[in-house]
Amino acid sequence: MVRAAVRLAAAVVAAAPLVVSTSLAGEFLVQPLMVAEMKAVFGRVESRIVVPGRARIGGVVQDVRVSEGDHVTKGEVLALVVDDKLALQLRAADARLEALNSQLENARLELERAEQLRASGTGTQTRVDQARTQFEVATNQVAAAVAEKAVVEQSAKEGEVLAPATGRVLTVPVTLGSVVMAGENVARIAPGPYYLRLSLPERHAAEIVEGAEVAIGERGLVQDIGELPAVHSGRISKVYPEIADGRVSADVEIEGIGDYFVNERTLVSIPVGKRSALAVPPEAVRTVHGIDYVRLAADNGEMDVAVILGEIVGDDDARRIEVLSGLRAGDRVVLP
């Protein structure tokens, strides 16, 4: 498509040769230039952090409030786990607390009666001390029962499985009615940041360097990309030192990748070396009957040379089109 656009532009220039004055023509000296050798590979979107939402108690899953792909915030309830034994323990704690409150009230009355008898002179100090001790023991027993009930209530509250971080839900491996143990995964959440993981053949390991710029193409098989640009740019952030199964891995950082799915694949063009190439400005090429020509300047005049074009090289300020055959270093190309 790029070559067709170049040919169209060159054809427009060649279609009106009479309106261009020869006094405005210039020359371009063909010299080799180094261009990056690009290789197209598939990169896989991954999240640097994947945290599990775990059940804090064992029991039966009574409610699942999220599904795969949902966006959750930290502390949001993902699911509800219910342990029927906790309800029985809570009833037992309430009954024990009522019994201890009754004993505490009886101990308080005994202490007041002993103090009244001691004040009237008919009671002894020993009786007062015994009643006070019984009252303090009953008070402490009530406090312990209240603490035990709070433990049971807290265990019941921990049946709510909370999101450990803000991100997207990757998997929910449980269903309603399933039995889970304490510490078992209820959901996996990817909070990011997202990056591309590349896997290249071992022969390119020496050419891959950190900080190199890469080009990211359109999203895999997605046709309607909305307002997303057709091509993103990124850079190689990390090259892993270990080669596994004859392949080297590298990570690519890219902005605006949050809309991608985790493990989604997209095409990445990565530099794996440099090569020497001959290139000319696009306006130097004209197309006649499907054949590309370049006009050369010689000592005895000008002549047209058929060329085979390659890809566009260079940046926006010095864009060139590669010539695969037909030219050699030192040729003088006539510009319109």
Rank of each mutant, 00 (worst) to 15 (best):
Y194E: 00
L33A: 05
T266Q: 07
R54G: 02
I236N: 07
R203S: 11
D331F: 00
G59Q: 06
R3P: 05
E105Q: 15
T22A: 08
I254R: 01
E76H: 10
S67T: 05
Q134C: 04
A190Y: 00
E264A: 10
A4K: 14
V151F: 14
I49K: 13
Q134F: 07
I270F: 15
V288K: 07
M34P: 11
S233I: 01
L198Q: 00
V231F: 06
E207P: 09
S67G: 08
V231G: 01
G258N: 07
Q62Y: 09
V272N: 00
G220M: 03
A10R: 10
I216C: 01
D331A: 04
E202P: 02
E153Y: 02
V174M: 05
E76M: 10
L170F: 00
R118I: 02
A182I: 09
P164D: 04
G53A: 13
P241R: 06
N300K: 14
I321K: 02
Y195R: 03
I243D: 06
L162M: 04
Q31G: 10
R7N: 08
S249F: 14
G121L: 12
P52C: 06
R320E: 05
E160P: 04
E153M: 10
A277I: 05
V128Y: 04
A284V: 05
E148G: 15
P52T: 02
L104H: 11
D259S: 04
E105H: 15
A114F: 08
H71D: 00
V151S: 10
V142G: 03
P229A: 01
A277D: 10
K238Q: 12
A16D: 14
V151E: 15
V146I: 13
R319W: 09
V313K: 03
E160W: 01
R91A: 13
V61Y: 03
E105N: 13
L29T: 11
T126L: 14
R168H: 00
I57W: 05
L88Y: 15
V45P: 01
D331N: 13
R48I: 07
V222S: 02
R54P: 06
S120I: 11
D245V: 11
R56G: 06
D224Y: 03
A163F: 00
E105D: 11
A25S: 12
E255I: 04
Q31F: 08
G220F: 03
L324A: 11
V214M: 01
E218C: 07
V288Q: 11
E184W: 08
V50H: 04
A92Q: 15
G192V: 07
A36Q: 12
A187P: 02
A215F: 11
A143T: 07
A206C: 11
A114T: 13
V285N: 05
T171Q: 01
S199T: 00
V285S: 05
S199H: 04
T175Q: 15
